[in-house]
């Protein structure tokens, strides 16, 4: 089953074109790492999937529903706004800078969206939240405010917050880039646990070892285009493209 289909996506920031006709299909249960030099459009591609960036041309489909279409007369959104909203809700996102709500405790962060968006009762939301916090190993920190948590703990709460909405797809935008080296492991191990549950995931990352270990597919982006889309063994052990070779040499 195709979870996300992006067709011929173009995106400009002012005059600068950051995505130059990117097409991508994500199947159910796939774990895809997106790597590449900074400024290559990796994060923008991810952000175009859940409307954090508006596309200038192309089509975005989530689980068969066209949620965004631009620049082409034939591409149209036929779903109702409710259906589009529902489709977007199937995606959870984790940010490089965590973006926890600082005025709420860890628990408050996790119960907020289930109650506000899904209209869950407080009891149900608490149950969901405690389950998710336990899953990321932070149940004992549930009453702590984000300012009292380490970077790794913050990111784990952020993952629990996204999971509490029961998404089918998780988007990770450089989830460990803002962390001290000794805190990266705890976040990666939470993501690995999700992989074992066959969560569909897209991960923009600079952690090459992690990408190689966890991914079903590795996508290499360069200058707003997908340069390579292959399995991790071929990608890391025998990169075909000289650009990728140089990039990997620099990273390792």
């Amino acid at each position: 089953m195709t979870m996300i289909r992006m067709s011929n996506i173009h995106k400009y920031f002012g005059k600068l074109q950051v995505l130059k006709g990117v097409s991508l299909e994500v199947n159910k249960g796939e774990i895809i790492s997106i790597i590449g030099p900074s400024g290559s459009g990796k994060s923008t591609l991810l952000r175009c999937m859940n409307q954090l960036e508006k596309i200038d041309q192309g089509i975005v489909e989530i689980e068969g529903i066209v949620v965004e279409a631009a620049g082409d007369k034939e591409a149209k959104i036929v779903a109702t706004p409710q259906e589009v909203k529902k489709a977007y809700r199937k995606m959870g996102m984790v940010f490089q800078s965590f973006n926890l709500f600082p005025h709420m405790t860890a628990l408050g962060n996790v119960i907020e969206a289930p109650m506000l968006v899904n209209k869950a009762s407080k009891d149900d939301a608490l149950k969901i939240a405690e389950k998710q916090l336990a899953k990321v190993g932070l149940l004992e920190k549930k009453d702590a405010f984000p300012s009292k948590l380490s970077g790794g703990q913050k990111q784990r709460v952020a993952i629990a917050r996204a999971l509490a909405m029961n998404p089918d797809i998780m988007l990770f935008d450089e989830p460990t880039s803002a962390l001290d080296p000794e805190l990266i492991g705890e976040v990666l191990s939470v993501i690995k646990n999700l992989a074992q549950e066959h969560m569909t995931m897209l991960i923009v990352t600079h952690e090459m070892g992690f990408a190689k270990e966890i991914s079903d597919r590795v996508i290499f982006m360069d200058d707003g285009k997908i340069l390579e889309d292959s399995n991790p063994i071929d990608f890391f052990d025998s990169p075909r493209h000289p650009r990728i070779k140089t990039f990997l040499e620099k990273m390792l």
């Binding site: 859940n50 409307q51 954090l52 973006n99 907020e112 969206a113 952020a158 996204a162 909405m165």
Partner: peptide, 16 residues
């Protein structure tokens, strides 16, 4: 700005 993005990614409306 990340606060708006996190809220939007969780499905909250602007007024929420």
């Amino acid at each position: 700005k990340g606060q708006y993005e996190a809220a939007k990614a969780l499905g909250m409306t602007y007024s929420q």
